[in-house]
Simulated assay, not measured.
Amino acid sequence: MGATLAKGIERLSAISFQMNNSSPQNSHHILISEYLRRVNVFLDKLSLFPDGYPLFSFAKMIGREIDADVYRACPQLDTLHNVYMKAICYSYLEVGELIDQGVDDAIQNADLHEPMLKFFERGGTFTIRKGELEVGDAAYPLMYWRTLVIPVQDISDNSLDLIDCNGLEG
């Protein structure tokens, strides 16, 4: 196991998915927006088209195979019942494994999942229902997420803490 994958497993293992709260913070919306922006940049750069949702296997999108052991490397994910959140975590592990293999597309997109990891670390949870990504009372329609023009969001911990303390959205 390479260093990047090991660090990713350690990071995911530290997230308390069962403790994620149902009342979203303002920072959660910033993180969702930034994730959608990064996914759009990644897909546009490689002229890729996912099936519909911004949740996909990174490895499959770039035509790579991942050893099944990678998906079993973080046992905590076996207890995660939200298949959408699990898909993001597995995709994150794929990026780590591919970085360790020296795959350029993975190296160039090492921070693709960073907004969602911070979202999970900050107690965020979401579901997808009727074509919308739902975070608390907010819904992000997924019918046209690929056409959105989203400005870069500051997702530094200081910025996110300020947003949550002051009740502001970016």
Rank of each mutant, 00 (worst) to 15 (best):
L5Q: 09
L5T: 09
A6D: 01
G8F: 01
G8T: 05
R11D: 01
R11V: 02
S16D: 14
F17Q: 00
F17I: 03
Q18R: 08
M19A: 14
N20I: 02
N21A: 07
S23C: 12
N26L: 13
S27Q: 00
S27L: 04
H29W: 09
I30H: 01
I32N: 05
I32Q: 05
I32R: 03
Y35F: 13
V41E: 10
L43V: 12
L43D: 07
K45H: 07
S47R: 03
S47Q: 09
L48Y: 07
F49Y: 14
P50T: 01
P50A: 02
P50W: 04
D51M: 06
G52Y: 02
Y53N: 11
S57G: 03
A59C: 02
A59V: 01
K60A: 04
I66E: 10
D67L: 14
A68H: 15
Y71L: 07
A73M: 05
C74D: 05
P75C: 08
P75D: 06
Q76I: 11
L77R: 02
L77M: 00
T79P: 00
T79W: 13
T79F: 14
L80G: 08
N82H: 06
N82L: 08
V83Y: 13
V83S: 14
V83E: 11
Y84K: 10
M85K: 08
M85A: 15
K86D: 05
C89Y: 01
L93G: 02
V95R: 09
G96M: 12
I99H: 01
Q101A: 12
Q101P: 00
G102M: 07
D104S: 08
D105S: 10
D105N: 08
A106T: 02
A106S: 00
Q108P: 00
N109Y: 03
D111S: 04
L112E: 02
H113W: 14
E114A: 14
E114V: 11
P115Y: 03
M116C: 06
K118E: 12
F119H: 01
F120P: 01
F120H: 02
F120K: 00
R122Y: 03
R122Q: 04
G123H: 09
T125K: 05
F126P: 03
T127S: 15
I128L: 00
I128M: 02
K130T: 09
K130F: 10
E132A: 06
E134D: 02
V135L: 08
D137I: 15
D137Y: 13
A138L: 11
A139C: 06
P141L: 12
Y144R: 13
Y144W: 13
Y144T: 15
L148A: 15
L148P: 11
P151N: 14
I155M: 08
I155D: 04
S156I: 15
N158S: 12
S159L: 07
D161R: 05
L162D: 14
L162V: 05
D164H: 14
D164W: 12
G167L: 11
E169Q: 10
